[in-house]
Amino acid sequence: MAAGTGLRARKRAQTRHALHESAVELFLARGFDDVTVAEIAEDANVALTTLFTYYPDGKVALVFEQDEDRAAALVDAVRERPAGTDPLRAVETFMASRLPFEPQDPRRERLLGLIFSTPQLRAHVRKKWTDCEDALVKVLAEEGHEPEDAAVRALARLVLESPDIAARESAPGEALAMIFANLRRGWRYD
Rank of each mutant, 00 (worst) to 15 (best):
G113F: 03
F101D: 13
L136A: 11
R98W: 12
F94A: 11
F94P: 08
V139T: 14
I115Y: 08
E102I: 06
H145T: 05
F116S: 07
W129L: 01
I115Q: 14
A96R: 09
A96T: 01
S97K: 12
S117N: 07
D105F: 03
A96D: 12
E109M: 08
F101Y: 09
E102W: 09
K138T: 12
H124I: 09
E133V: 10
A135W: 06
C132L: 03
L114G: 05
E142Y: 05
R108E: 13
L121A: 03
A141W: 01
C132S: 12
E109P: 01
T118P: 01
W129Q: 06
H124F: 13
F116M: 10
A141T: 02
G113T: 08
F101T: 14
K128R: 14
W129V: 01
L136P: 04
K128W: 02
M95E: 11
K138Y: 00
E142S: 13
K127A: 11
G144E: 08
E142H: 07
K128Y: 05
D134W: 00
S97P: 00
P119E: 11
A135P: 04
F116T: 14
P119M: 08
L99N: 14
K128V: 12
P103S: 14
D105N: 12
E92K: 02
T118K: 03
E102A: 15
V125C: 02
L121V: 07
P103T: 15
T130D: 03
L114D: 03
Q120K: 13
R110D: 15
L111N: 07
T130Y: 03
R122D: 06
L112R: 05
L99H: 15
A141I: 05
G113M: 05
E109Y: 01
D105V: 06
E133C: 02
H124V: 07
C132K: 04
R110M: 10
L99I: 15
V125L: 10
P106I: 10
P103N: 08
F94I: 10
E109D: 13
H145G: 06
T130A: 03
T118I: 05
L136N: 12
P103V: 14
W129S: 05
P103Y: 04
L99M: 15
A135Y: 07
P106W: 04
P119W: 01
F101P: 12
P106G: 10
T93Y: 00
T130F: 05
L114T: 04
Q104H: 06
R110F: 03
V125P: 00
R98T: 12
E92M: 05
L121S: 08
Q104W: 00
P103I: 12
M95P: 04
T130V: 04
M95Q: 14
I115H: 12
K128C: 09
K128H: 04
P100Q: 06
D134C: 00
E133T: 09
R107L: 13
H124M: 06
S97H: 10
P119N: 04
R108T: 15
Q120M: 11
A123Y: 07
A135G: 15
V137W: 00
V125F: 10
S117M: 02
L112P: 05
Q120V: 11
R110S: 13
R122F: 02
R126S: 14
L112Y: 01
R107V: 08
Q104R: 10
A135Q: 08
A135M: 08
L114C: 03
P100V: 07
D134H: 00
R110N: 11
